[in-house]
Design a protein around this nucleic acid. Sequence first.
RNA 1: CGAAAUAUAACGCAGUCUGGUAGCGUGUCUGUUUUGGGAACAGGAAGUCAUGUGUUCAAAUCACAUUAUUUCGACCA
Length: 492
Amino acid sequence: MANKITTRDTDYSKWYNEIVVKADLAENSAVRGCMIIKPYGYAIWEKMQAELDRMFKETGHENAYFPLFVPKSLFEAEEKNAKGFAKECAVVTHYRLKNDENAPGKLMVDPDAKLEEELVVRPTSEAVIWNAYKNWIQSYRDLPILINQWANVVRWEMRTRLFLRTAEFLWQEGHTAHATKTEAIEETKLMNQVYTDFVQNHMAIPVIQGIKTESERFAGAEETYCIEALMQDGKALQAGTSHFLGQNFAKAFDVKYATAEGDLEYVWATSWGVSTRLIGALIMTHSDDNGLVLPPKLAPNQVVIVPIYKGEDQQKKVVEVAEQIKLELSNRNIRVKFDNRDNFKPGYKFNEHELKGVPLRIAIGPKDIESGTLEVARRDTLSKSTILREEVVDYVLDKLDQIQKNLYEKAKDFRDSHTTEVNDFESFKKIIEVKGGFISAHWDGTIETEDAIKKSTKATIRCIPLKGIKENGKCVYTGKPSTQRVLFAKAY
RNA sequence: CGAAAUAUAACGCAGUCUGGUAGCGUGUCUGUUUUGGGAACAGGAAGUCAUGUGUUCAAAUCACAUUAUUUCGACCA
């Protein structure tokens, strides 16, 4: 009951449960909405981390680590940011427990150990980081600062949803400081592109790049660039954001640098992040009724070998061939697992690895040994073929590549067929209700209209697409003139 | 915080209306036989029925309160 995850049409629980479970921390615990990432799920996260980290470094960034605790005075320095997060902060007020005299064996918060200044558990790290940057930046020679942090953050949401909105989550947050506005904006766009490349090429999830409207923008940002993906149930998911922060944080933390001309100027800032929410996106984009479907580039095991045999003689022969194939594949950097557990039957293993989303499965039995063949099954299409034993390496390399592409194409076809151009509000309402997905429509650019549409349909503006075509039209709600279509959808 | 539903074994559930021995499936443990799509049989272990109070000869079951969870609102990556 506690672990059941149900969206409107789809029960994702069996897929999630391979990867993550809701943390059952304690009876009557006030901590809700935390998750335990199981080893298999964490292995996927590690793959994602490794690739993102490589991309960050390739674009000139370095990793660093900053404190979990943010003194309240620092936190409130940038007003808009503080206000945006104020309602969802966990706050540390005491630093000690003591024995409870009224309840032997129990502990209580020591009232004498009240902190003079409360500590906010970071919901994001701008405040601590910019407090540090103040001391790191003196001159234009110190710029740019291009730093990324891998960390956990806490956001005490009213309502949590496993994976997509947990109270604590893992993420990376990049925080950069630049001498010029142009350079900072370039950085913001660059990271938006890095996220796009990663999500599309590695996660096989097609995304729309765009900028957020004022009401959806990050608290404290001047412009928020985002990538938006569409899930199989027709709801949109924000997959990654990069923010141009202007000089807001520089002014709040008084971070100035001496220019080459000797003037003092405030620096320009960006921040950008993606979180474990991406694993949720991965599941909800590709999975089918048989369980997870993982893109080869992120699958902890790309190939699993299942042996089939009767009796010890056969077992010996089959295992020998299987080990040999495993070696051949590993030598080509393919992540391969030989499932030689003797206490499960092949059929059980087939189903288990399907549930876990392993892209390719190789079955080897006595018949194959005799004929020099192998049976290879694809997870994405659930189709099986028999191949020659000596072709295995080339075949696997080729198929892994195909699966990666096929998953992307499939997701893209779904996304495209669930993106509808709409020109009047009646169809807007109908499409959102019946079909779901993205709606491309004209908007007059005002918050009032955005709000009214949200109230009436629950759909929000996901983004103003970067690659949108300029065209003159009339706002779908007010009929006022507009120059570009924006993307609406119901969102997670 | 508003509205509704739910809480029984590790997991999924029945039993509650109509009070009277704590049940089923999966998993788990032992043994034997099994292995080309979730094995079969036999035997075993496992539950303060969310918590508290009340009604009753008797409460998983009825009443009241509390807590937690889920879904829908408001909030949000």
